[in-house]
Amino acid sequence: MNPGPQIQFYLFGKDYLPVTDTLLVGWLSVIIILILAKYLTSSLSIRPKGKQNIAEMIVELIYKQIEPMLPGEGWRFLPFIATIFIYVGFSNLIGLVPGLTSPTGDLNTTLGLALVVFVVVQYEGMREYGVWGYIKGFAEPVIFLLPINVIGELAKPISHSFRLFGNVVGGGIIITLIYQAAPPLIPVPLHAWFDFFVGMIQALIFGMVAIAYISVAKS
């Protein structure tokens, strides 16, 4: 048993360009999400019907998560946050399909996303207070808290990424263990539980934490 991403082949035969199963599923996820988005928004009208309602519901649901924490900037952050929600959520869900591994079960995915969030958080902080003002904020309320604040800030992407990664991989490991211990029929509800509910909740948490970090940096 070897949980986590499995290297499938090397791009152009180079050792430093491995292609893992999680990356392949990630590409697949992107393609499916884009097809779905294109389908859902293929015939928009002022009076929504059917699939347009679903698309609007998703967008508005995410917007309603952002707006209360970043008042007045819901639409500015929507593309970024919504893409996190959708990509992470879909990546978690796609693990339901037998034979596919969740891209979020790969630390490369979650840490990558967490680092993007980290960069956005720093950018927004500096945009709000100016570069020097933002940096000075780490030395408050007293100067000797500076190292602690910096470590705390650097720990954010780590905790952010490992939380999602740990949950997805942990769920995967438990499922694998139960698969080995029990007949394949029994784990189905468990599989659904770990991959569906935990997956959705972790996607929600990942996105909400991203919003919270941005909100904290701006406040």
Partner: peptide, 30 residues
């Protein structure tokens, strides 16, 4: 199990491609 490599870059590209295209196909029209 925990192996950081260049796939992170690919995943980031995935994310940004998705961000760009969803903005075009989903967020902006909606």
């Amino acid at each position: 199990m925990v192996n950081i490599n260049t796939t992170m870059l690919w995943q980031l590209i995935n994310f940004f491609v998705l961000l760009f295209l969803l903005r075009k196909f989903l967020y902006s029209p909606i």
